[in-house]
Amino acid sequence: MSFDKVIGQDLAITILKKQLKGDRLSHAYLFLGEQGVGKDIAAFEFAKAINCQEESADACEQCISCRKADNQNHPDIIEIKPDGKWIKIDQIRALQREILYKPYESRWKIYIIYQAEQLNLEAANSLLKILEEPPQYAIIILTINNAENILPTILSRCQLIRFRLLPDQLIKEQLNSDYELSPEKSQLITSLAAGRYKDAVQLIEDEEKLAEREDILKLVLAIKELDQVTVFEVAEKLLEYKEQINQVLDLFLLWYRDLLLVKLTQIEGLVNADYKEQLIKEAKGYKVEEIEEIIKIIQNTNNVIKKYNVNLQLTIEVMLLKLSRLGRQNRWQKQLE
């Protein structure tokens, strides 16, 4: 049925179904999980199931309510998404006004707020009162990637439903049943997706993504030999991926994570398994502490870009300069030894 669209989130779905069956729906839910694991789909399907006229614990996909929802045409399921980067206070004020009107045709009126971490401070605070005691017929569902990015007061008002990263095995099976892939490719895509099915699908459907990855890995390999001049060339190349710089940096991180594992003589479970030989070769040139340091630098840069409104070019350049200095220092030390 319609909850089947959500892959691999058995626990979350079980909890939701039990609540539907037992008629113990809470007035506020918070769906928590990494990006691309199916929260948003689950939230929408849950809303459909709540209002479905035929079935009690799932959406039938047949009744008028379900069909309206599928056509984005349901008057009692209202979706709120970031307007620009943020969800603003006016959007929440509109919610507060409209939520007081009884549902038009269903028993429940459901608001879904996607990417709730993008609620700006004012909006989040103005949500508090209505989230605690909405009208009897209202249910508010929030979806969020990281519990650290939301007010604890919001968190404590909602019932928390956790969505997990999918096990690799499951992603692989699903991919093999949905697409025709060679075993190597499905393995590669599974490990690159790192538990996020949506990413895996993206990798398959957008051929360029894989080619992009090759290019980015070339840049990673170049980092080791950087001097003060080439740093800026690499930075320029990185800035071509301005829109998805976080994903690019994630690829960097995965590469160094693999290096670390290889260094510790663990060859199983590499993400970049197709580069195994290269990794083994590369690993010889590094010390464990050095790799840890590199991961820390990239991680920090990633956080800064995500959290603050920084000058992207400067941040990337600073990161590369730091990495190249680290590389030089270590080479120097090695020579001394």
């Binding site: 990494e34 990006q35 990637n145 990281n146 650290e148 990263l165 790192a194 538990g195 976080n246 994630d250 991180l253 995965l254 994570r257 670390l260 594992l261 510790l264 464990v288 840890e292 991961i295 991680q299 990633n302 956080n303 995500k306 959290k307």
Partner: peptide, 22 residues
């Protein structure tokens, strides 16, 4: 503390456990 702000909790966790061991 590191885990709080990351999008790659798995990498941080792996690294952390390695640190704990070494």
């Amino acid at each position: 503390a590191d885990l709080k702000q990351t999008t790659q909790p798995r990498i941080i966790l792996e690294m952390g456990v390695i640190k704990l061991i070494k």
